[in-house]
Structure formats: C-alpha cells, structure tokens
Design a protein around this nucleic acid. Sequence first.
DNA 1: CGTCTAGTTGAATCGCATCAACAAGCGTGG
DNA 2: CCACGCTTGTTGATGCGATTCAACTAGACG
Lengths: 284, 284
Amino acid sequence: MLKESVIMHSISDIHQDEGNTVCSNWASPNKLWSSLADVGEFLHTSAPQTMQHEKVSFQHLHFKAGQRIHALGQEFDALYLVNSGFIKTVLFDENGYEQVLNFPMKGDVLGMDSMHSHEYASEAIAMSDCDIILLPYKTLISLCRSHEQLEQAIYSLLSRELARQQQRLSMHGTSSAEARVAKFLLALSERFYSLGYSRTTFNLRMTRNDIGSYLGLTLETVSRTLSALNELGVISVSQRQITINDASALRNLRKLPSTKLKTKLTECFQGSHIANWALAPALS
Amino acid sequence: MLKESVIMHSISDIHQDEGNTVCSNWASPNKLWSSLADVGEFLHTSAPQTMQHEKVSFQHLHFKAGQRIHALGQEFDALYLVNSGFIKTVLFDENGYEQVLNFPMKGDVLGMDSMHSHEYASEAIAMSDCDIILLPYKTLISLCRSHEQLEQAIYSLLSRELARQQQRLSMHGTSSAEARVAKFLLALSERFYSLGYSRTTFNLRMTRNDIGSYLGLTLETVSRTLSALNELGVISVSQRQITINDASALRNLRKLPSTKLKTKLTECFQGSHIANWALAPALS
DNA sequence: CGTCTAGTTGAATCGCATCAACAAGCGTGG
DNA sequence: CCACGCTTGTTGATGCGATTCAACTAGACG
C-alpha cells in the first residue's frame, strides 16, 4: 500500500525507484543471508514453521542492471530465488539472436530449466538492480528430503511453470498481435498487483524489442499496437509508463480495427462497453 | 533390431502394426503390473538395482485409439508412463479450439503439468492402442523419498520438459513454416530411432491438423510444405508415410523458394549439398 | 555537443491464413 | 458388390496481417 502511492506518483518518481535496490517491503533491505524458513515462506510452502529449526542459511547475491545472473553453458549448481528486481531470461538461436523466455520478478525461481543438465540451459540478465537468494542445488535437494512441504513446493514450481509455458505456446499459435500484447499487459498488471504495486499503472521494465521477442512479434508491431491501444483510450502509454484504462476491453480484445475501415470497430470487441465510448470519438 | 526389420518392410506391414497393441520389444506384451525397478529403468535412473527389493507394483492400463487417458479438469492423482502407443496431449482455448501440446510416446510421462494442481491441466488422447503404466502421485512421491535416483529422475523429467518447451517457444517466434515442419520431421525421426525404429522411414501417427496445431500453422500450410519438400526430393511423402531422403538438407532449411522466383533457390539452404542436386531438376 | 540506444511511424512486401473445390481413403449398410 | 457419407489430405486463388526497410524523434550519457 505504501508502494501503491509511490507508483501512483509522477514518472520521475518511478524512475528514481528503478535506480536502486531498495524495496519498502523488505524486512531488512540489505540482508545478506536468509534462513530456510524465509525461503519456505517465499515459495509459499504450507508450513514454513517446521523449518524454523534448520540451521542452514542462504546467501544473498546482488546484481546491477545489465549484469548476467547466470550464463548459457555455465556450470549448473544452483537455483536463484528473486528477492527483488526485474530480470529477463533468454535463449539464443543458431544465429545468435536472443529469444526472451520470461521476465522473472520477486518470488520467481531461475534455473529450473537446467536441473536435468550440468549446464544452464538459458541465460538470466538483470534488468534492474537485483537482490537474489542463492539456492545451491545439492543443499536444496537434500533439504527437500527432510522437509516434505519444501519438496512439494519445488514440484509445484516446476509443474506450474510447465503449465504456463503451455498456455503461452497455445497463445502464440492462435492469437493476433493485438491480443498478445493485451494479454501481456494484463498479465503484467496482475503480477505487479500481487507484489503490492498498482494494478492499473506500472512501468514496463523491458524494451519493445524484448516484449516483441517474448510475444513472438517484432518491436515495430509492439510499438504500433501500443500506440493503437493508446489511441483507442484503452490504455495510456508514454514510453515505458503504462496505465490501463479499461481492463475488460483488453481482456475481450480479439483484433484491432484495420486503419482503413473504422466502421467494423464493434467486431473487435465482444460485448464490452468500451466499444461504445471508444467508437464515438474515433468516428466523429 | 527386430523391430527395425519390421518397420523396413512395406507400408502395408506398418499399417498392420498400427492396428494392434503388440510391440515386439516388450518383455511380456500383456503384462498387467510393473515393478519399481521396471519403472526406474524406464525413466533412465542411474541405479535401478537398488529398487529391486521394493514390493510396490504399478498397474498397467490399456487404451484404445481415440480414448482419453485423462481429461482436462479431471481430478489429478497420478502420472502416466507410456509403455507403448502414440498419444497427443491437448489444451483448449477460450473458443474450444484444441491446441496440441505434445505427441508423447514410449518412455514419456503424462500429467507433469498438473502436479501443482488438483486437476489435470491438459488432456491426453490415445492416437493408437496404448499400454500405459499408472503412477499414483502419492505413491510415487513417497518412493522418491527413499530412492534418491528416482527423485532425481522426476526432477530431470520436469526440467527437461521445461527446456524443450522453451526451445519450441523460441522456434515459434522465429522460424518459417518450412523450417518448423523440417525440424518437426527431424525430431520425430530421432525419437523413432531412439525407440528402435527406422530413422529414415516412419509413419506420422497424427493428422495434418494436429501437426499444424502443434507447430502453430494451419493444416493447409503443413500439407503444402510437405508437398514442396517432396517435390524437392528432400523427403518422400505418401499420406502419413514419410521417408527422409536428405536429413542434412532438412536441418539446413531456412525457407523454401517462392514459387515465382526459383533463381534464389540457393539462398534457402546454407551450404548443404542438396542445394546442388535439388536445383538441377528444378531449374531444368 | 555529438553519439547511441529506444521508440515511433510510414510504405511496400511477403508469408501465411482463409475460403473453396476437389480427390482419396475408409467404414457402414443396403 | 457398389453407393454413400465422412474424414483426411491436396491444391488453387485471394486477402490480410505482420515483417521489413527506412526515415525520423526523443532521451540518455559521457
């Protein structure tokens, strides 16, 4: 709620916030070690209390914006639990082009796609200053053996991630560019909200290029789509600053009207009230 | 090796093979129960011997072609290990259209995307008669606790699947229709080979529609692409029967020549020798 | 102040989807 | 046995949506 107000301020305020690792909801911002109970809580285990008496502690790592958290091909020996900051994970195709896989943030775990290998299968890059908890793989696994809820949490993380990837895959096959961008914005909105930020106003931490890569589009298409949604009044865009004006319109979006025929505007939404008030100014 | 020769026979032989569940490499074709050691071996655990003395046994289930193995929304309580047969897993989008997620076959595990939930997150449909080993989730998890290699195998399965999905996602974003189909054929080829079948000649078990859904294309595009590859001589297609004539050409394929300008044919391959001998008849 | 990256916007192109017609395989039942 | 419907696959014509190429603007940074 405190952050809520911070975010609701002007753009400059948010840019300030972006520059440092301080996050108001930390118990102790500069903590260097976390207990197992902390980690358990982070991963939403059912009973972190039972971990209270464990003596292990986990090291915190700090990364500056732009730094690599782990590189492709680097020896795999740990998972990374994001405590604060914004990250992108990428893959490189045969031509060296990078494909964005995900935008992990607080509470997300990195490296799960590499547990079967001795090398990291992807690369993680800090998009802002980050505070990350190092979870050495062997330590974690052996703790799982004694803490059933922790083990279940790990399974859940992996499984949930798998299910999410499937949803994305499905979306890629069917949806239009507009629908993808709309869903992306909605998903971001929900994630920010669940972290205590505003649901309606937030800052994209990534470039248009990164968004495009993530969604399977080009940066131009992303830019155009954002502009179009802005034009319609569904969202307000100014650089990376986004305000969602009509979430339900975003949810119901199928495709945007072609610039030529504005008469078919109503077809683009399915029974959303925005069709009416967005149409009025557009047609006048 | 025995199966190899079977497959290398005529098409009619293979069609016969498709009709029944008999698979020559079973220890006992009609087995109803498997031991933990069997399962461990199946999952490529490092030391299945240590599981010899476990008294648990796992039930086999039989499904006929077209039957659902598990349905979306059904209560999740077990993973399924494919012992024989061909399966497709699907998801349904908001309009009820089905999105193909995967084509599991022998040795693959179903249901991993549902471990975090109390319901299956996707649907599995038998494309041929199938023999499947039921792995009750709770039983499996508790066995993991006492058999470290088994636990590691489960982690590996999940992680590997995640990594594969990422690769697919990446491919969807960048590759052309031709490249996707080519990669799909190569991947199938390798899987069949690893199961003891021929690497070069095999039978697609799925429709063009299913392939299209899996690859994010329409069935027409899949059909056209297969026809074009056939025309070039890179593969031979007859209905669902595929023969790969030049695997390296498939691997190096970027995009097919447009029907209008055959002069730029060489651009479509990167230094493959097929460019030469495929060009000759095409240009003459 | 110039350079570099990020973002916007326009015009032309192209790849794939869409729509449609048709052929082939297959099971069913007269 | 062929007639019939149904599913699957092929192929052509057309149009749209997204990419591509390009020009331009606006901040960021040393």
